[in-house]
Simulated assay, not measured.
Amino acid sequence: MLEMAKIIVYETREEIPVMYNPTELSLNKTVLVQGEGAHIQFQRVNSDDLTVSLFFDTYERQLDVRSKTNRIVALTVPSVGTNERKEPPVLIFTWSGPLFTGIIVKLDQKFTMFLSSGIPVRAELTVTFKAVLTEQEELSSRGYFNCRQLWQVKQGDRLDLIAQATLGDPTLWRLIAVSNGIGEPLNFPQTKDIGRALVIPDIHVGAGAANA
């Protein structure tokens, strides 16, 4: 049986199948670096936008093709997310397995056939997705799992104690705070921080660069 591509709404797990599979897909990665020559330093890996062309045809059934396409159009409408901000839903484009996770940032809809009544029965959608990463995926894209220490925050942790345990110097707590965007270090950890993975900066990188 032919496997059909689908768009899955991450939060609700709603599945929206396409009518016809795309004829091609381009999944690209961009490696961001800083510096030149012998001093190039890796920063992160970005997933480029994914653009897919989807074809819908309801002519044989004499139905309004918008009954199919409107489900995808609706995915561009922001709703209130878990952080109380209005934002479009996070989606998973899957075809024999997940291929891309992101939000729709552009949608072009073109109707190419109509009934005598003016009802559209054929449409082409060009959908552009921008990647959205989970916290773990964000850390992975920066290579933190490969080259830096991580510390999972637990109840009773303090930044100076974490600095002592990981860097051997409690006075380096400010480096950890800055590296992880902790705006209120004296109130750390808050409830939202429990279970969070902190990135421990590599204090030897700066020393190595200075000696180069």
Rank of each mutant, 00 (worst) to 15 (best):
L2H: 01
L2K: 00
E3R: 02
K6R: 14
I7E: 05
V9F: 12
R13I: 00
E14C: 01
E14A: 05
I16R: 06
V18P: 08
Y20C: 03
N21P: 06
N21I: 08
T23R: 07
E24F: 13
L27R: 09
N28C: 03
N28H: 11
V31H: 08
V33I: 10
V33K: 14
Q34G: 05
I40K: 14
F42Q: 02
Q43C: 02
R44L: 05
R44C: 12
R44T: 10
V45L: 01
N46M: 11
N46Q: 10
S47Q: 06
D48A: 03
D49Y: 03
D49P: 13
S53P: 00
S53R: 11
F56L: 09
D57S: 01
Y59S: 13
R61E: 13
Q62M: 08
L63R: 03
R66I: 00
R66Q: 10
K68I: 01
P78M: 14
V80H: 01
G81F: 09
G81Y: 10
E87G: 05
P88N: 07
P89I: 12
T94S: 15
S96A: 08
P98W: 14
I103K: 06
I103W: 02
K106L: 06
Q109Y: 08
F114I: 09
S117N: 07
S117Y: 00
G118C: 08
P120A: 10
V121M: 04
V127F: 07
K130Y: 11
K130T: 13
K130N: 08
L133G: 04
L139F: 03
S140H: 01
R142D: 00
C147G: 01
C147P: 01
Q149V: 02
L150T: 04
L150S: 02
W151F: 05
Q152R: 14
V153H: 13
V153P: 10
Q155F: 13
G156K: 10
L161N: 06
L161M: 07
P170T: 03
P170Q: 12
I176C: 01
A177T: 04
A177L: 07
G181K: 09
G181D: 13
I182Q: 08
F188K: 05
P189N: 11
D193P: 04
D193V: 02
R196S: 15
L198C: 11
D202S: 15
D202R: 08
I203H: 01
V205P: 02
A207S: 09
G208I: 11
A209Q: 15
A210S: 15
N211K: 13
N211L: 08
A212C: 04
